[in-house]
């Protein structure tokens, strides 16, 4: 067997015949590689630059001082509390839905799937109006509640509802994919071994899907943290009660850019920390490979 035909020098004449004179395979590869590297660098720069600018444009001492501002403290506390509660609600409500949609087929499933995706497509302000129409004082459900003396708009509950509405699709979609990725064979094996559906879910399916579920929960958390349009429409803007970080930033921006910058920075840093924390915890908890 003559291995000489695999020597690189002989490849070039081939390429010249196919691609025409003056063509160089190695050069083309080099151009391709630099092009790709450039594309990656540009994308990273485009994302990193605005974030870096936040840090560069706010002087450290004003930022640290602004941290003690009650506006900042209230907004931070409110955002953390509502987003955490929202994520919990979304996970508890969304996991069964995701599992059922991953495994079973039932009449109307298409409609349910579309409904789940709807809040993603809706502009947040529209979502806010829709929530008002349903749960506001004059709303379809709201006016019954109002008769009972319960009013949702302009309360912290409204903030949570708005956040749940806009962020649940992010979790449910991811959870559904994660459940679908769990090989049916595992479920079948568990059931033949005598495990009930519930036992199988908690001991087999959930642990295998958990990484995807957590990633979905992080996305829901992040979305709820940044939620603005639906919140300001449905819950309003009141310090300590409904003024979450994004609302506080927008309000402050109109008067005091320094406070707004500080809030923006805090939001970015906190988001990063939360996401990093959850990722490290997950990696430590379940280091499993798929068969």
């Amino acid at each position: 067997m003559d291995l000489n035909r695999f020597k690189p020098e002989i490849v070039e004449p081939y390429s010249r015949i196919i691609y025409g004179p003056g063509f160089n395979l190695r050069l083309r590869n080099k151009i391709l590689k630099t092009g790709l590297a450039l594309a990656i660098c540009l994308t990273m720069a485009f994302i990193a630059l605005p974030v870096a600018s936040l840090f560069l444009k706010s002087p450290l001492d004003t930022t640290l001082r602004s941290l003690h501002d009650p506006v900042v403290m209230d907004a931070l506390r409110l955002s953390m509390m509502t987003s955490t509660l929202t994520t919990l609600i979304v996970v508890l409500m969304g996991t069964p839905v995701a599992y059922v949609n991953a495994r079973f087929h039932y009449p109307g499933k298409e409609i349910v799937d579309s409904l789940i995706d709807l809040p993603v497509i809706m502009p947040p302000a529209v979502a806010g109006i829709a929530l008002l129409m349903a749960f506001g004082r004059m709303g379809i459900v709201g006016h019954y509640l109002n008769a009972l003396g319960l009013s949702i708009a302009f309360t912290t509950l409204a903030v949570i509802m708005a956040q749940v509405f806009v962020s649940s699709p992010f979790y449910i979609r991811q959870a559904r994919t994660s459940f679908e990725d769990v090989d049916l064979a595992f479920e079948n094996a568990a059931r033949t071994l005598g495990a009930s559906r519930v036992y199988t879910f908690f001991h087999v399916i959930l642990p295998i899907a958990i990484n995807g579920l957590i990633s979905g929960a992080i996305m829901a958390f992040a979305r709820s943290l940044g939620e603005f349009g639906a919140t300001i429409m449905f819950a309003g803007n009141f310090q300590g009660r409904t003024q979450t970080m994004p609302l506080a930033i927008y309000t402050a921006m109109q008067g005091d850019m320094d406070v707004a910058l500080c809030l923006a920075l805090v939001l970015v840093v906190i988001s990063f920390l939360v996401i990093a924390l959850v990722k490290t915890l997950t990696r430590r908890m379940y280091r499993n490979a798929r068969t």
Partner: peptide, 20 residues
């Protein structure tokens, strides 16, 4: 009868050992 009540042992082609 549901599979969990049938008491039938099943070795799958892919073995389906729980990976975690």
């Amino acid at each position: 009868i549901t599979p969990e009540m049938r008491n039938i042992g099943y070795v799958f082609q892919s073995y389906a050992l729980f990976p975690h």
